[in-house]
């Protein structure tokens, strides 16, 4: 079982490497990988695809700044975030938005594992810990 899990991880990583061109996930390459899986049907293909999906999702998250907001966010503000993050991480980063009323006010920007938060809810949480 352990050996099989290792093989699955190895295959997923190989497929992932094939899907990335110049540090960016290529949709064409991903389509090619999926075609290959469909044709060749390797052992444990479902598990391998799940592992492959996780790696791709992690990589895609690094190229996208997910902006959570409580109020409205203007287009120039999103542009400024995209520019600033692209500069910071040294790769092209696009923005996506999601409304999150739990923030009360302010923004929460997620790029990969990094979260930049400037919201009332996080300030209140900090305050509750310090009191």
């Amino acid at each position: 079982m352990a050996a099989a899990a290792k093989q699955i991880q190895l295959l997923a990583r190989q497929l992932f490497k094939l899907s990335v061109v110049d540090g960016v996930v290529s949709p064409d390459r991903v389509a090619g990988v999926l075609q290959y899986i469909e044709k060749s049907a390797p052992a444990h293909s479902v598990l391998a695809l799940k592992a492959y999906r996780r790696l791709i999702a992690t990589e895609l998250a690094k190229s996208e700044a997910l902006v959570e907001h409580a109020g409205a966010v203007t287009a120039p503000a999103l542009g400024a975030i995209a520019t600033s993050m692209t500069q910071k991480y040294g790769r092209p980063i696009t923005t996506a938005t999601r409304a999150n009323p739990k923030l009360l006010a302010g923004l929460r920007v997620r790029v990969g594992d990094d979260v930049y938060e400037s919201s009332v809810s996080s300030q209140l949480a900090t305050l509750s810990v310090s009191v």
């Binding site: 996780r54 992690t58 302010g106 923004l107 920007v109 997620r110 990969g112 594992d113 990094d114 979260v115 930049y116 938060e117 400037s118 996080s122 300030q123 900090t126 305050l127 310090s130």
Partner: peptide, 28 residues
Amino acid sequence: KLSTKAVKKNTGNIRTIADGVAKIDGLS
């Protein structure tokens, strides 16, 4: 303390948890 300066956090999500040990995705 309640200033609007953004705070950076490095995060992850619990993938599995058992017997006081958690496996976490992320936390790069």
